[in-house]
Design a binder for these strands. Structure first.
Lengths: 327, 327
DNA sequence: TCTTTTCGCTTAACCGGTTTAGCACGAATT
DNA sequence: AATTCGTGCTAAACCGGTTAAGCGAAAAGA
């Protein structure tokens, strides 16, 4: 900018006004405007957004924190968030937490240091205080997929209880009575609701058996999922269906079932929370819950921009899922 | 910082020296250091990285440009890149191109505006000039997955020709003679190599039939893939196997084959370039090519940091893939 | 005792933009 | 002729850090 100003014998401020499209308000003559623009093009001038950000206090960047971007579910969600953000002229910094509190804390710190204009995040178990820290800084914030019951934030979630109970209900109606549930033992509303949705329906139908509810430690999941399945297989009173509370548990579980020669649906019926891209090419009958990923992403951006524009009331958006069948 | 300085009756520079860990070089007394640090903690001081970036010329941020982050392959790649970047104290901005040149150009512009310290990108067809633009700015750059033959950049790729020819060779040895290939008509080295690898082997074995090579327009892929499969199904001389050049073509294709009642492997054997997470739960026999995604990501970061540290020689890294079978 | 070092901290320029107040000058108004 | 107004541009402060040069006082050396 200084270079352009010098060459044209004008001031830096004038160049700035022209190049930032404020020539009208700055009352810069048309002829000079053209000369500035042309020279900028000739010199391949690239504006320094860092300087602009420092000056304006706006970075045109939002941060997104997810457990695992390589997970299809979050990958898709981020895709939609990015597309929307791009449309609004915002860039996106994504960070993975691996469901780990320490990583979550670091991620938030990084984003605050980078002065992002807003944060969309999937909260991690026990991250309540960290989320409060963000709020105390008045940084626009939207939680997605999950939320903390004790903090009044804006969130976009799906009704996990409703989806799970409808799915189990469907399975019961198909005649499968002894149904198991495999879930992480993470104390997050979204997950506990999935479990609760199943359990309540099973109880209602009088077919609930506590022993068929398996809780998995996230950090040792592969082994524990396999053990859970072995246990279920060896149940004296035959288990007829398994409800997998997440996509990842499902994939690990079904892979193991194949290895063990457990036939689907002959030996066991399966239900998966979340859709897997590849359902379409597998010829396994899976009842699954399809969350409206695109909608979640778009609503999240919408709610975030509401806040960036100044709104300060928390929005609570609960979306519904579809129960689908893979074949 | 000014606030801390005022409260302690010292200068801003001193606070900066302490908080940026340069107290030793700045010869700041131990006692004062402690007071500064403590007050910073008390006040919940958060450093403004934007200001630091402007001052130092380093943003501790890298940009990553991929065709589609929701694609499992790129999703995983980005995951590994992010983990490595995080380890080195760098944040990552990702942008999708959707294989579109305009989006690619915009993505590069955004990243340059944001003054990223380096860029890792999956090039898009025809983006040669855009890549040259980056190089002319001396911004550290690594291409992954693909590269332009006419530009001497650092790149990390796998040997697509080798992988494809080995996979086809395997299929031929299993006795499948009339083999088709479905690929995008995109003129990118990585893709043309895959096609070439197949064709050369088929020719070598004297079973090449030009009509079995199907080229798909990216923008209209679903319909064209379905048409290609219908054509192959109606071939008078029965087609025995299909080589799908990308994961996405594979998923679309196999889904359609199911709909059409084409049985795998009874009616048709399938080969997929790239692994799909869900192979493990599908009981379809798929011969597939597994690229070393983690290695690509890690090598990319490594090569990028070599450049950030000052190296200016282009590294060309070609990795090998595994041929695997899903069952 | 006088000079040289070392120590502890400050001063102020700088990074590259944005933005407000204001100056100079000609045209319009009174 | 004096005043007001509009136009076109500049000057300079500001955003929040970093950092080289420098300064006074105390310690070490001659």
């Amino acid at each position: 900018m200084q270079d352009i100003a010098d060459r044209l014998g004008i001031s830096r401020g004038t160049v700035s006004l022209v190049l930032s499209g404020k020539a009208k308000e700055g009352r810069i003559g048309d002829e000079l405007q053209n000369r500035v623009k042309e020279l900028a093009r000739e010199l391949n001038y690239i504006p320094n957004e860092i300087a602009r950000s420092l000056s304006t206090g706006v970075t045109k960047t939002i941060g997104v924190i997810v457990p695992d971007i390589s997970n299809e579910f979050f990958g898709k969600m981020i895709f939609f968030i990015q597309e929307q953000a791009k449309y609004h002229g915002y860039a996106v910094i994504t960070i993975n937490t691996n469901e780990c509190l320490k990583d979550f804390d670091e991620a938030v710190t990084i984003l605050m240091n980078k002065q992002v204009d807003g944060i969309i995040l999937v909260p991690v178990e026990g991250g309540n205080e960290i989320v409060k820290k963000i709020m105390s800084r008045k940084i626009p914030l939207v939680l997605i997929d999950r939320f903390y019951e004790d903090i009044d934030t804006t969130y976009i979630v799906t009704d996990n209880y409703d989806a799970s109970s409808r799915a189990i209900e469907l399975i019961l109606n198909e005649g499968y009575k002894r149904n198991a549930v495999i879930c992480y033992d993470i104390n997050l509303f979204a997950l506990t609701e999935r479990k609760k949705g199943c359990i309540d329906v099973l109880k209602k139908h009088g077919v609930y058996d506590e022993r068929l509810i398996k809780n998995i430690h996230y950090d040792n999941q592969e082994i524990e999922i396999e053990k859970a399945i072995t246990d279920l297989k060896n149940e004296p009173d035959k288990v007829e269906a398994i409800f997998f509370c997440t996509r990842r548990i499902f994939l690990t579980g079904v892979k193991y079932m194949h290895q063990q020669g457990i036939h689907i649906p002959g030996d066991m019926r399966v239900i998966c929370f979340d859709e897997v891209d590849a359902f379409s090419f597998a010829n396994i009958p899976v009842t699954y819950i399809k969350q409206p990923i695109q909608q979640i992403g778009e609503k999240a951006i919408e709610a975030l921009f509401d806040q960036i524009r100044g709104s300060d009331q928390a929005e609570h958006i609960v979306l519904n899922s579809e129960i689908k069948f893979s074949l």
